[in-house]
Design a binder for these strands. Sequence first.
DNA 1: CTGATTGCAAATGCTTTGCACGCCA
DNA 2: TGGCGTGCAAAGCATTTGCAATCAG
Lengths: 165, 165
Amino acid sequence: MEAGIKQKLDDFIRRKRLRRTVQREQIVDVVFSRDEHFTAEELFERVRKVDGETSRATVYRTLGLLVEADLLRQIDLGESQISYDPNFHDKPSHNHLVCIDCGRVVEFEDAHVDIQTDCVTRRLGFKTVRQSIKIEVNCEQLRLKGRCPSLIATRLTGKRLRRKR
Amino acid sequence: MEAGIKQKLDDFIRRKRLRRTVQREQIVDVVFSRDEHFTAEELFERVRKVDGETSRATVYRTLGLLVEADLLRQIDLGESQISYDPNFHDKPSHNHLVCIDCGRVVEFEDAHVDIQTDCVTRRLGFKTVRQSIKIEVNCEQLRLKGRCPSLIATRLTGKRLRRKR
DNA sequence: CTGATTGCAAATGCTTTGCACGCCA
DNA sequence: TGGCGTGCAAAGCATTTGCAATCAG
């Protein structure tokens, strides 16, 4: 786990007078062992592989704490389950691009966009706290080659969409 | 109801060979009688005032159809319930600004932002289908005057947030 | 010690669905 | 008349919560 994250977590634990438990340590380790988005259920399964005891409830509760500590951010990818993104510590203002064809999620940062949206916000008399941009896209790969490399893998996960689009 | 919406709806009904029922007509009327966002439950209550018979299930099913017809769009305001936005026909590319203090939602359109995000999308090898920007903000009114006019009204609705932030 | 944390199971809340009946085309 | 649409109640599903036992500090 990156040093900055550990630092921020320590501060949070001290400030809120939280206790260090094996479950929490393990969950945090798993969360920051990769930079991919995940759902509570996916995290639960990954944690279970490390420790067959930890409960779903503890996973949910710890997720809540990490969001509160601003180490994790909830993102809306249009599915019925909430997704969590562990990359906001490294890239505080990144956004997401979701491929409608294959479900792939790409992160991007762009200062111009940030400046532009902040400009709009101030013009309307508000102060930006946080912004989230989701761009739904079509895969050029699919259009040009007739198939998208991520397509099959995604289909197999068979996630239920919250909505038909 | 605006003529363009009626037209689009008629096309959709014909194309999908749907039937016109009193329930659907009433729901559609209520949906487009205002330009405010609403949840399924709020819509159900408004419909019930017109016709005490229509069921929750029919409201949900009709909402699905209207989304499919692209007459309504689901938006994520950070609450546990999905919100529906009836203004995408008039303003196809508008976005939302949500006040953290009072919960007020302001819509905005900005061509510069659209151009900028589309630029990013193409640079990454994708084609924009749809984008949604949510900017969470603080109310300048609250900061300057110590209170925000919408605050009390919002508090009273007491909506549960999907997440603590 | 003492209160924070955990696991379990039950509860919650929004949304979807199976089914029998009714109604539009 | 055929089968789409409806209402009802039950089911689904992700998430939250009450509670008694356990554990960290």
